[in-house]
Amino acid sequence: MAKPRKKPPLRTVQVSCSKCRAALYKYRKGGKGALVKCFVERIVEDHTQEVGVCPECGQQFARETMIRGAPAYKMIGGKVLMK
């Protein structure tokens, strides 16, 4: 399988918790679809203490996984908002 592009996209999005609206990540997203996965190497700012868990309300929003040979977080549907 192919790896994600080496050059990260220029567009950054703010990822926040859908329950309490706490900031989770600032992420370099490619494409215009929904946020399904976050490659770890594309995360610019990380506001979480524990992987995949909201620091404010404690809701789990993602799971650690390997996608195309790169470490990533697989988002749980409806748990995060993207601006």
Rank of each mutant, 00 (worst) to 15 (best):
V40C: 05
F61L: 00
A72S: 15
S18T: 11
P4S: 02
M82V: 15
A34F: 04
V40Y: 03
V53D: 00
K26H: 08
Y25T: 02
V15I: 15
V51Q: 13
K32L: 04
Y73I: 05
R63M: 09
K74C: 05
H47T: 05
F39A: 04
T48W: 03
P4I: 00
K3H: 10
C20V: 09
V53L: 03
K19H: 15
K26W: 01
P8G: 12
M82T: 15
P4H: 01
K32Y: 12
A34S: 13
G58P: 12
G78M: 05
Y73D: 01
V40K: 09
M66H: 07
T65S: 14
S16I: 06
Q60T: 15
E41N: 06
E50F: 05
Y27R: 11
C20K: 00
Y27V: 11
K26Q: 06
F39T: 03
K6D: 15
R5N: 10
E41P: 02
K79P: 07
E64H: 10
G31W: 11
S16E: 05
D46C: 14
K6V: 14
I43C: 07
D46R: 11
P9V: 00
M66D: 13
R11G: 03
G69T: 01
P55V: 00
R68Y: 09
G30L: 04
A22R: 07
K37L: 12
C17L: 08
V40I: 15
C57M: 03
C54Y: 02
C57W: 05
G33W: 05
F61Q: 00
E50A: 09
L81T: 06
C17E: 02
G77A: 13
T12E: 14
C54A: 04
V36C: 10
E64Q: 12
K26I: 11
V13A: 00
L10C: 06
L24G: 08
D46P: 09
K83T: 10
Q59I: 14
Q14K: 14
V40E: 11
K3G: 08
P71S: 02
